[in-house]
Design a protein around this nucleic acid. Structure first.
Length: 276
DNA sequence: CTAAGTGTTGAAAC
DNA sequence: AGTTTCAACACTTA
């Protein structure tokens, strides 16, 4: 589900719902969501106040007083929403943070892949997952020189390379298919064989697509919703993802769908050049 | 009944 | 020894 634009939208919609609130009680219905010992997790966060919410890549960072940070990853289908604690527990709700003001934040996740990890603020970049993340799009660290250099060392295909969060973080299956179509690069192209000028195109398309998709509040194609329960807007702008069997908006050729390293991949066999 | 689905990870394989 | 691949995670929907 959520790739960087969706996670950023969740962050923005979550802030007005929970910022400044103090946790009175935590109920964990499905303990595997919690990376820490659940008892310790509850004990440490009880009576703590949410100061702000940051984000790195697809990770949400809930900042609490007393030097605590809760690292939260939604994986495929994780969602946060505000309730009153008397509302009956939904089938797929796994964790509840009850606040002292009488509201509660619930975490729902049909596939139970999401994780919450409580760490000391400042050490979050050493946690599994965040430790090896590459730069985010639209940052100084993600320079075109860096990107050309990084791709030149990769022996795998470009689709898999862009999904590799250690190269650039924040892209997922939807936006990778979109930026490769925009850049006219075949998903099975060898990353290191793509000419530099095409990598520059790809670089700009990554930055631009993340910017526009974030402005549109993300993409809802399966079940993604923000913290208010609202859908995104970028799905209407998708050119290839979910459009297999339809005509390419650039050349009219029928878009094909294949598997690339286990992930469904839609592309135009005419426009998108395969570099070997 | 089978396959596919927005993501990551640890271990196996290269 | 670093890099790449792949099954596994858990559940719903087509």
């Amino acid at each position: 589900m959520p790739e960087m634009p969706e996670v950023e939208t969740v962050r923005r919609t979550l802030i007005p719902l929970v910022k400044g609130k103090t946790i009175a009680k935590i109920i964990i219905w499905y303990p595997k969501i919690i990376v820490n010992d659940p008892d310790e997790f509850v004990k440490k966060l009880t009576n703590k106040k949410i100061l702000k919410i940051d984000r790195y890549g697809k990770y949400l960072l809930f900042r609490f007083n007393d030097g605590l940070t809760m690292v939260s990853h939604l994986r495929m289908e994780g969602k946060y929403h505000l309730v009153t604690p008397d509302q009956p527990k939904g089938k797929h709700e796994h964790v509840e943070f009850v606040f002292t003001d009488g509201t509660a934040l619930r975490y729902a996740d049909v596939r139970k892949f999401g994780r919450m990890h409580l760490v000391e603020t400042g050490t979050e970049k050493q946690t599994t997952g965040i430790r090896h993340l590459g730069p985010e799009p639209n940052t100084e660290e993600f320079s075109v020189e860096y990107f050309i250099n990084a791709l030149s060392r990769k022996k795998k295909n470009i689709k898999n390379t862009l999904l590799d969060q250690t190269v650039v973080c924040g892209l997922g299956n939807i936006y990778v298919d979109e930026v490769l179509w925009q850049s006219k690069i075949h998903p099975l192209s060898s990353a290191k064989s793509i000419p530099a000028d095409k990598i520059v195109d790809l670089y700009h398309n990554i930055n631009h697509t993340i910017t526009v998709a974030t402005k549109e509040r993300g993409t809802t194609v399966h079940t993604y919703l923000d913290a208010n329960g609202d859908i995104g807007g970028y799905q209407s702008m998708l050119q290839v993802y979910g459009h297999a069997g339809e005509e390419c908006n650039n050349c009219g050729t029928i878009l094909e769908k294949i598997k690339v390293n286990g992930r469904g991949t839609t592309f135009c066999p005419h426009c998108q050049v395969q570099y070997k």
